[in-house]
């Protein structure tokens, strides 16, 4: 867990499907300053994993902080984490609290 986020959870999502299958909203300079999961698509890697939930806020992706990142930057980091062949999983540090 993150040192400053005692309620955070580390979720490892295996790349078990061709898509990650989440929709996110938020980012720096919006009403939702950290990216939040708004949809989990059935059949995607995130859904298969079973541990990510709608409403969770993403704090880190593969150890990279989402703080201060605008929406497109956060989305790009998540997309690249899923696309890279260096790992067969993506690690999300998430929290239920906004």
């Amino acid at each position: 867990p993150g040192l400053l986020e005692p309620t955070s959870t580390l979720v490892r999502v295996a790349k078990s499907a061709g898509t990650l299958g989440i929709a996110i909203e938020g980012g720096a300079n919006t009403r939702q300053p950290l990216p939040r999961i708004v949809t989990i698509q059935r059949g995607g890697s995130a859904h298969n994993c079973g541990q990510l939930k709608v409403g969770q806020v993403i704090l880190e992706v593969n150890g990279v902080s989402m703080r201060g990142r605008e929406h497109r930057d956060a989305a790009r980091i998540i997309a690249e984490a899923f696309k890279t062949k260096e790992r067969d999983h993506v690690d999300f540090l998430v929290t239920e609290f906004n």
Partner: peptide, 15 residues
């Protein structure tokens, strides 16, 4: 007058 009320909503991206 809260600052957060003046911030725009975010777009949504499917990943």
């Amino acid at each position: 007058r809260e600052k957060r009320l003046t911030l725009p909503p975010s777009e949504i991206t499917l990943l």
